[in-house]
Design a binder for these strands. Structure first.
Lengths: 126, 126
DNA sequence: CGGTATCCTCTAAGATACTG
DNA sequence: CAGTATCTTAGAGGATACCG
């Protein structure tokens, strides 16, 4: 039996808004599509792959996604430490949708750019 | 002929990251799915419908989405002012994907909640 | 290696007041 | 009605140093 949407997202107190913010966060979206493509990655691999991310933000993002049940964190008890990150089933589904959004942007980039240029010109002449 | 993805989203300078941030922004996602459901709405209708949004943030969000070519802004030259907002074709496609994400959250809410509780318990005992 | 802890900066975002 | 202008603040986010 599947659970169903109980709250209205337009309500200020809708708790699903918070999860949405985690999934769609700046670094969260990049972590998700990277793990979707790569399967499993270590902390340092994620850090190197995602340009511009700080250790702090990566750590924080991973914790949030793990708490929401989107990311698996597997610690190998060895020295030096070895930690593997991967997507849960739920994470794969979220990441796939996020990836669709990125493809939409990439596949229509000319349209986005044209819209921005047109908008800026309208503002400049006005 | 469709344009294709030119940049790597993992590159710090990838311009599509900015558009992604607009689409997935806190208020942006709510504006999109509300317009997707309602078709056309006025500024004050959007403001009333989206719980918690300030005029400033709504205005800013609408401008960003309009600049990216996702939202149409139609001004009726009357007094008092009348401005209609709606989604462009591109906006409908983005909003539909965003809506999929919200449905994913709503349809699996029990799983999200359980994951959060389990995570918090793990942290507490540790 | 995989993080935390601390400090600091800057801007996202809310509140309020005002305007065409 | 549909915003803008101004002010203020909470917290997002970065830099650096340190630890198990």
């Amino acid at each position: 039996m599947e659970s169903v949407q109980v709250w209205d997202v337009f309500d200020v107190n809708c708790p699903s808004r918070a999860v949405m913010e985690h999934i769609s966060s700046k670094w969260g979206v990049l972590v998700q599509i990277l793990l979707l493509r790569s399967g499993t990655l270590r902390f340092s691999e994620l850090r190197r792959a995602i340009g511009g991310v700080s250790e702090k933000m990566l750590s924080q993002t991973l914790q949030t996604l793990e708490r929401d049940g989107l990311v698996n964190r597997l610690v190998h008890p060895v020295i030096p430490p070895h930690v593997d990150y991967s997507l849960t089933d739920l994470g794969v589904r979220a990441a796939t949708t996020v990836n669709t959004l990125f493809e939409l942007i990439g596949n229509n980039w000319a349209e986005f750019e044209a819209a921005q240029i047109a908008y800026d010109r309208r503002k400049a002449t006005a």
